[in-house]
């Protein structure tokens, strides 16, 4: 038999592997498949740790030549068919699929890659043309989307509290940015670094949404998850998951603090990301224009031009952006003044 380790849950493989009605050869093959399945899972879990270790090695890294015109990295989309086995079955020609989530996962992943290339000259998640892998139709009415260290995964939502997660451009950019963070500062998912990690994903998620709409900062809504709010959520007055401009707002389903305080790193990263989210909003508003042109460049450079610092504190990240706002824009002091004032306003 062929290996179906990516499609069939391990418990089912093991159940069949003990079925006396199957031939010895078939049971043996099922045992092997289950073993491979477990190894693949372990391999994926080690992926993030491996990335971090590799980035820390003192190996010379020649500059990556920028191919012009740039060819976007490949984007592969897999269909989980409502199971929770990743990655699922690969979809041929996802860009022309009649299935909305499949097509959106493909098109928007490519658009996020274009956003990172056009604005920051970053070639894919890892800066080295990495293939973008997305799985859709994960689980049954699954109410979440996530990055697992190697790929993006999107649920369909239950249609009441959340809609299909691929409907949010910011959702897709948020998840892909977790990959960018993994391949740059390598921020952890706990402590103050966890809050920064989540904030990076919200910042670049919102920035991407604005870039797609060609919005200036004053026209943007700065809401995270606005496009996936279901009818029940809206009925209860929730217009988004988080509001970068007003983290405490009651219309956010998950309100956040708007000011830093010692100990904030002990809390959930989606909560502690409030102050750095607000700092980016304030800096971008004070600078004006398009968020990705100046504020975005400062944040991107702060995220990607240092060795991995998994436990970076918020104050250290703020200090990096303050310094970079001057070195990147030496003839435009309004950028430094805006960045400095923004962090000061949130207590950093």
């Amino acid at each position: 038999m062929t290996c179906g380790c990516c499609i069939i849950p391990e418990d089912i493989l093991l159940r069949f592997a003990s079925d006396p009605e199957l031939s010895d050869a078939a049971r043996q093959a099922l045992h092997h498949t289950a073993e491979i399945s477990g190894q693949i899972r372990a391999l994926r879990q080690q992926n993030a740790a491996l990335t971090l270790t590799a980035l820390r090695l003192p190996l010379p890294r020649p500059p990556i030549p920028f191919p012009l015109p740039h060819v976007l990295p490949a984007a592969h989309v897999f269909d989980c068919h409502h199971t929770t086995a990743l990655p699922g079955v690969q979809v041929a020609n996802p860009g022309s699929s009649p299935d909305g989530p499949i097509k959106r996962a493909y098109v928007e992943s490519e658009n996020v890659a274009k956003f990172y290339w056009d604005n920051f000259k970053r070639d894919s998640i890892d800066g080295n043309h990495m293939t973008l892998v997305s799985s859709v139709h994960y689980g049954v009415k699954y109410n979440n989307a996530f990055w697992n260290g190697a790929q993006m995964t999107y649920g369909d939502g239950d249609g009441q509290i959340f809609l299909d997660f691929t409907l949010g451009e910011d959702v897709i950019a948020h998840e892909l940015t977790h990959g960018v963070t993994q391949h740059s500062l390598g921020l952890a998912y706990s402590g103050e670094a966890g809050g920064l990690n989540e904030s990076m994903s919200d910042v670049f998620g919102s920035m991407f949404r604005q870039w797609e709409k060609k919005q200036v900062v004053t026209k943007a809504d700065w809401l995270i998850g606005a496009d996936i709010m279901g009818p029940l959520s809206k009925q209860k007055g929730f217009t988004c998951l988080r509001d970068m401009a007003s983290p405490k707002s009651p219309h956010a389903m998950a309100p956040q603090p708007d000011h830093y305080y010692p100990g904030i790193g002990n809390l959930d990263p989606h909560y502690s990301s409030g102050p750095p989210n607000l700092a980016f909003y304030k800096a971008a508003q004070a600078i004006g224009g398009h968020s990705w042109e100046k504020a975005g460049k400062v944040w991107y450079t702060a995220l990607t031009t240092a060795p991995p610092m998994p436990n970076m504190t918020m104050s250290k990240f703020a200090a990096r952006t303050r310094k970079l706002s001057t070195s990147l824009f030496p003839n435009d002091p309004t950028v430094h003044n805006a960045v400095d004032a923004a962090w000061t306003a949130v207590g950093l």
Binding site: N144, F146, A254, Q256, D268, P269, H270
Partner: peptide, 29 residues
Amino acid sequence: GFGGFVGAGGPASHVHQRGRLDWSALSAA
């Protein structure tokens, strides 16, 4: 559930993702 895009379960979050099963409802594997 904690985290993901939704970030359920945070200190001030209005959204929660919880479930439960009888242990006996699970297979031996």
